[in-house]
Simulated assay, not measured.
Amino acid sequence: MSTRYTLACDLKDDPELIERYKQYHAPGNAWPEITDSIRGAGILDMEIYLTGNRMFMIMEVDDTFDFEAKAAADASNPKVQEWEQLMWDFQQALPWAPEGVKWILLDKIFKLE
């Protein structure tokens, strides 16, 4: 059984920065330590979509996934911290995000039934 989470984050509204960010996320360009940490946390699949400077992430996770455990593991992983610091060069928090929070969970408001 898997669970889907959707999240949003903004990029700085600068076409050159957005292109560089897209290059970091192009197939094969994400650092292997990052993809390993994602998979190791119980994330089965992850996609990021972009419109303008707003990104949307879709994560499919297994029953072992826990946001707090992932955050703790990331905080103790120097390579993940290096990646996250680098990504802050491109990202900006949503206006309503708590201090230091990049990705905000989305509320599902509709499902076709």
Results as ranks from 00 to 15, higher is better:
E19S: 06
R20T: 01
P95W: 05
A8I: 13
A75E: 08
D14L: 04
G42E: 01
E16Q: 11
A97P: 02
M87F: 01
M46N: 12
A71M: 12
K79H: 08
E84S: 08
K79D: 07
T35Q: 14
E60T: 03
L11D: 00
R54Y: 07
L105R: 11
N29I: 00
S2F: 06
F67P: 08
D45L: 11
E33I: 08
V61K: 04
A73I: 05
T64E: 08
Y49R: 10
G100W: 03
W88K: 14
I48D: 09
L11G: 08
C9T: 13
K108Q: 14
E84V: 08
K22G: 09
L7Q: 07
V80M: 03
Q81T: 01
A73Y: 00
Q85P: 03
L105K: 14
M1K: 12
E60H: 05
I109G: 06
K12A: 02
E68G: 05
F90P: 01
D14P: 00
G42C: 06
D107M: 14
P78E: 12
G42R: 03
P27S: 10
G100L: 02
R4Y: 05
L7G: 00
D62S: 11
I43G: 03
A75F: 01
Y24M: 15
E113V: 14
L112V: 14
T51P: 00
M46E: 12
I18P: 02
K111S: 15
F56K: 13
E16W: 05
Y21N: 04
E99R: 09
F110S: 11
M1I: 05
A8W: 02
L44I: 13
D62P: 04
K108F: 00
G42V: 04
E99V: 13
F110G: 13
H25D: 04
K12Y: 02
P15E: 15
G100D: 10
L105M: 09
E47S: 13
A71G: 12
D14T: 09
M59L: 15
D107L: 15
Q81C: 09
D74Y: 02
D62E: 11
L7V: 07
T35W: 06
M57H: 07
A8S: 15
T64V: 13
E16C: 01
D10F: 03
L50G: 10
P98M: 15
S76E: 14
Q85G: 11
A41N: 07
T35E: 09
I18Q: 11
R39G: 12
F65S: 03
D36W: 10
I38R: 04
M87I: 06
A75W: 11
D89P: 00
M55E: 08
Q23L: 15
A72F: 00
P27I: 06
P98C: 13
R39I: 13
Q85D: 14
Q81R: 10
L94E: 02
P78T: 08
M57T: 09
V61D: 02
A8E: 09
F56C: 15
P78M: 14
T64N: 14
P15T: 13
G40H: 09
T6W: 03
F67M: 15
L50N: 06
